[in-house]
């Protein structure tokens, strides 16, 4: 019986205690942030949408290789030595590769931040922008390369010509070498024409 009265009293009393707490909160300062109008501060190192500075990227493809979800696609073109534009990377070093294709699929990206840490030139960076929802997934596929199609074609042609020349020179050399029956420049190999990586 005493137990019963105690239980009833406890049931009543704890309800009163709870109601007192909620009543106190009724008049407390509210914590809601009226989102689109005023915002929660985002720290500058927040890992949100990625941004690539194409003038900085040297096309080393480290980011492509480290990405755990394979959402970066990089294609590069070799720069011919006598390119009239004298290409430079924004940090001052000489450009060895054009980057005609640099795509990031934000629908896949998991914002792990690995790509930004491996980049030798700090070309790829996270920004604080997080509001980029779109109505279609295709819009999340962002192309970052700053090369115009004409420029790409032009550079391709230059490279092709250069490579043709190189090939001819090589063939000439090989012929000469064959004539002289000496095997000297077998190792002077050039890198493949176009490095194109597919994203498995």
């Amino acid at each position: 019986m005493i137990e019963y009265i105690k239980n009833v009293w406890l049931g009543f009393w704890t309800v009163i205690v709870g109601m007192r707490i909620t009543l106190a909160h009724l008049f407390e300062k509210k914590v809601t942030v009226q989102y689109p109008d005023d915002r929660y501060p985002i720290p500058p190192n927040a890992r949100n949408k990625l941004y690539l500075d194409p003038t900085l990227c040297n096309g080393c493809t480290s980011c492509e290789r480290i990405c755990p979800v394979n959402c970066i696609k990089v294609e590069t073109l070799r720069v011919v030595p006598d390119d009239p534009e004298r290409p430079m990377i924004a940090d001052g070093s000489k450009r060895k590769l054009w980057v005609p294709v640099y795509d990031i699929d934000f629908a896949k990206c998991c914002f792990c931040g690995l790509c930004t840490t491996v980049c030798p030139t700090f070309a790829i960076k996270h920004t604080v922008e997080f509001e980029y929802s779109t109505y279609s997934r295709d819009e999340l596929y962002v192309r970052f390369s700053d090369m115009s199609p004409e420029k790409i074609i032009e550079k391709k042609k230059m490279l092709d010509e250069f490579q043709a020349k190189e090939k001819a020179a090589k063939a000439e050399a090989a012929r000469k070498a064959a004539e002289e029956k000496s095997k000297t420049d077998a190792k002077a190999e050039t890198s493949p024409v176009t490095e194109s990586k597919e994203s498995n």
Binding site: T22, F27, K30, V31, T32, Q34
Partner: peptide, 13 residues
């Protein structure tokens, strides 16, 4: 509104 204020929210605004 009351539920919101009790929970330190603003409720519909």
């Amino acid at each position: 509104k009351i539920s919101a204020w009790i929970q330190e929210r603003l409720g519909p605004m």
